[in-house]
């Protein structure tokens, strides 16, 4: 295991923020926490590429911008190809001796709609071509900016406006797409999962993702109080429950090796810490209907799904 990167928060907090206040993301939204922590972990000139979505819309309402770093938005579906283009241009300029920086970090922020669905082919292409950039998926598990439509990242049973829970269906009828596994399948140098609640773990992963040569992918859980239906103050608690229940395990895949990290490693070592998935579901209004007697079997189904993925992870990481 490589030496642990340490961040001195009391020093970092004195610096001017790279994501500025005055943005119009909802109170309590996790997306700006993710973006600010990621930028805090950078130590080189940084270029940010943003896919369409809440983070992009609400941080750049004309004529304002909240980005204290070079930033570009192109379209919904092509954040990864935009990043590829930037990397290629920098390479070309360097060859001609026209670029002053030795190393530049390119970070993509994209939502689940922009990643699991509409941006998947541009992402896969960029991973396959091997561009040197870090892609951070902030996963709020639905198309939030257009009013909570289900995406490939929405979990089974979740209410959304296009998977409404009622007499016909009990919320979304399919499971979440295994997006981080899809990134791993490309055999890129670095893939990880993270949450803003486990901030030191997240910042370390960002630094690792930026330091590797080639593409890196971080899947960050981004609770949305509007779409998930919980109080604005609970964002970080919801992240903790997601990890404590193994709904969202923290792991990294580095140079072909799997590793559990932070709280998930603690749970693997002491399985008594693992909480039932119900504890994650019950604090969110989007799962409220699952607690009706006729839908209870779905909670069991979600638990089975979570357990299967967790067991699989324990095997991959060599713990079982």
């Amino acid at each position: 295991m490589s030496g642990k990167i340490v961040f001195n928060i009391r020093e970092l907090a004195k610096r001017p923020p790279k994501l500025l206040p005055g943005h119009r993301l909802c109170a309590g939204c996790a997306a700006p926490i993710i973006a600010k922590l990621a930028l805090l972990a950078t130590d080189r000139p940084t270029i940010v590429v943003n896919a369409t979505g809440c983070l992009e819309v609400a941080t750049t309402i004309f004529p304002y911008t909240s980005w204290n770093v070079p930033w570009i938005h192109n379209a919904f579906e092509n954040a990864a190809s935009t990043a590829s283009g930037i990397e290629a241009v920098i390479k070309a300029l360097k060859k001609k001796g026209k670029y002053k920086y030795e190393n530049v970090d390119i970070i993509v922020f994209a939502g689940d709609g922009g990643t699991y669905d509409i941006g998947l082919q541009s992402l896969s292409g960029a991973l396959e071509r091997g561009h040197d950039f870090l892609y951070i998926l902030y996963d709020n598990e639905a198309y939030m900016n257009t009013g909570i439509q289900r995406s490939g990242g929405t979990p089974l049973g979740a209410w959304t406006t296009t998977s409404p829970a009622g007499r016909v269906i009990p919320g979304k009828t399919q499971h979440k797409k295994p997006i981080a596994d899809i990134a791993v399948a490309h055999r890129i140098p670095y893939v990880a999962t993270a949450t803003p609640a486990h901030w030191m773990d997240f910042m370390r992963k960002v630094r690792k993702g930026l330091d590797v040569n080639g593409p890196a992918f971080i899947h960050a859980l981004s609770p949305c109080d509007r779409g998930w239906r919980f109080d604005t103050s609970e964002t970080i608690e919801v992240c903790k429950l997601a990890v404590d229940t193994c709904y969202f395990p923290l792991w990294e895949f580095e140079n072909g090796e799997w590793r559990l990290t932070d709280r998930s490693l603690a749970i693997a070592r002491n399985p008594r810490l693992k909480k039932p998935v119900e504890e994650f579901l019950k604090v969110q209004g989007r799962f409220k209907h699952l607690f009706k007697p006729e839908n209870r079997h779905l909670i069991e189904e979600i638990q089975r799904h979570v357990d299967a993925i967790w067991e699989d992870l324990l095997e991959r990481t060599g713990i079982k």
């Binding site: 004195k14 206040p21 309590g28 103050s233």
Partner: peptide, 24 residues
């Protein structure tokens, strides 16, 4: 989420110009 806690090296304070009152 709103960069509204300010650290001056000694103590924290809240920047009420931007704080949205989320309660986190």
């Amino acid at each position: 989420p709103d960069m509204s806690i300010v650290w001056d090296g000694q103590r924290i304070s809240v920047n009420y110009d931007y704080c949205k009152g989320c309660g986190i």
